[in-house]
Write a protein that binds this DNA or RNA. Sequence first.
DNA 1: GAGTGGTCTAGACCACCCT
DNA 2: GGGTGGTCTAGACCACTCC
Lengths: 239, 239
Amino acid sequence: MMTKPLKQPRINTWQGVHAEVLRRLNARVWKPGELLPHEVELAAEFGCARSTVNRALQLIAEDGLLERKRRGGTRVVVNPEHKATFSIPVIRVQVQQRGSAYGYKLLDRQIKRPPKRVRETMSLENKAKLLQIRAIHTADSRVYVLENRWLNLAVVPAAADIDFSEQSSNEWLVEHVPVSGGALTLSAEAADEQQAAALECSPGAAVFTGERITYNAKGAAITWVELVYAPGYRMNIEL
Amino acid sequence: MMTKPLKQPRINTWQGVHAEVLRRLNARVWKPGELLPHEVELAAEFGCARSTVNRALQLIAEDGLLERKRRGGTRVVVNPEHKATFSIPVIRVQVQQRGSAYGYKLLDRQIKRPPKRVRETMSLENKAKLLQIRAIHTADSRVYVLENRWLNLAVVPAAADIDFSEQSSNEWLVEHVPVSGGALTLSAEAADEQQAAALECSPGAAVFTGERITYNAKGAAITWVELVYAPGYRMNIEL
DNA sequence: GAGTGGTCTAGACCACCCT
DNA sequence: GGGTGGTCTAGACCACTCC
């Protein structure tokens, strides 16, 4: 008599182990809060090397479904959080991906002191002056988004020589300045007079707004940008 | 005479290789569009195994900074896209993380036919009936978000026996129903009469809105939910 | 102290894709 | 056809943490 079935097919790819473990989590074979068998045991069961099991479990742990500790083993997370990854393409690409013709127009470009809110977010001194760029991006000749950017010339001196009338600051930065971190804030705002004029909508209209700050490898703020989308814009994210 | 300096310290952890490669990308040692040395070469230079280099490069490629092909080697991406990962915690946790007291109130619970938009998004038949749940979540006794959910009882029959007056459908689902995919749509909307009343704001106010649909492992739509946040809400994402 | 996951290594084979 | 990344393996050592 055998105590364990030996007939089960070998699972010796990390994708295979990944899928099988997910299946067992879904099927509640391993219930929330429970401990999984050790990597060595699972490797033996699947007929593969421990490192293969390791890779699969690490991935699942990154997705938030498992919790792993050195001495404590691998445990099923009780209330898993949804995790989503999305990419923020250059605006031109966003527009073109929708199948629309892209257009760009520079509204304004000048060096001056930024408002307090921008100064504080970027951790700048009071007297600091930045390059402000205001522009609109269009899709099929209709306004798509209004861009209001403050660029730190102390960090990106080369930007002082660009006039941004042909290429958007958005694209220039992606091509020329390496970014290492940042933060994004999304909100719903009522369009003010100036924004409404630029977006060809009525003042007070609900507009989807994103504020983004980016830092270089040394932690210095490169730029702060506010993107105000025309009414009706929807941001889609796969989960 | 030596053609290569041999003094450089060994880099034999994947984290070390990861950091060093990122440094060289930032410093433009390898420029956008260029080909990197092969894994074997890099392994020799760093004094580590190829698999260590492989792990580091794969991670960077996942972040969108490198592009790897089987025969074509590893290339520096020209216009890297920002990638961001964020998690969607249960609303109670969101509120508590802000240091506020969480409250929940069920407004409405009934079985009926959903509106066309929901039916189509969930790919349901015309006659299908769903469980609709409307509720508000509060932070420090102020309305935080209005939840409007449609639950597919054909997929989650157990939900029919829950009244959702104590525990929100949000939390119940996370605990009891495994999710394998979905989509999230964010937008700015003008609050309608009903929403304004629930959110204690004026009709037409700009409200941040998220619509989410989730699927089980078989691809069947579990639920569709609309979350309308009270004016002033901001969603923060680290990059 | 001991058991668990985290990682490295050296070697091997394979899949893909460019030439 | 041949060169590249993708992956697996078996073994080893280490780091962390629980008992």
